[in-house]
């Protein structure tokens, strides 16, 4: 699993590539926490390159959403593959974290 982040004025976009499972969920968490920007700055998780996410990974997404919420910021995910979209839909996570088609949609959805 590889993470890369860029700050595009108002939101941090983090690209996650590879697999997130129980074995690297902690790295995933630390990586995302480290990418959190200034107070009030939202985050978009670009999952285009993500092939798999386990429940441990979903939990990290939620923890990061909570951290951002405390900083009056939001979290969105975008560019989900069919299998990851299915994971979000089955688990009901799409009702907790907003899901967008791509980073552009996510940015406008977050009002950035």
């Amino acid at each position: 699993m590889e993470l890369s982040s860029e700050n595009t004025g108002g939101a941090v976009i983090v690209k996650a590539v590879g697999r997130v499972d129980g074995a690297n969920a902690r790295d995933f968490h630390e990586g995302l926490e480290a990418s959190i920007g200034a107070d009030g700055e939202s985050m978009v998780l670009d999952f285009e390159g993500l092939s798999y996410i386990s429940s441990a990974g979903l939990r990290v997404v939620l923890l990061v959403a909570k951290t951002l919420q405390q900083q009056r910021a939001k979290l969105a995910v975008c560019s989900l593959s069919d299998s990851i979209r299915e994971v979000f839909e089955i688990s009901g996570f799409d009702k907790i974290v907003p899901v967008y088609a791509d980073t552009g949609d996510a940015m406008s959805g977050l009002g950035v």
């Binding site: 979903l58 688990s91 009901g92 996570f93 009702k95 907790i96």
Partner: peptide
């Protein structure tokens, strides 16, 4: 059918 519930313990 998927009845659309959210995982428990979150919200």
């Amino acid at each position: 059918p998927l009845t659309g519930g959210v995982a428990l313990g979150l919200v």
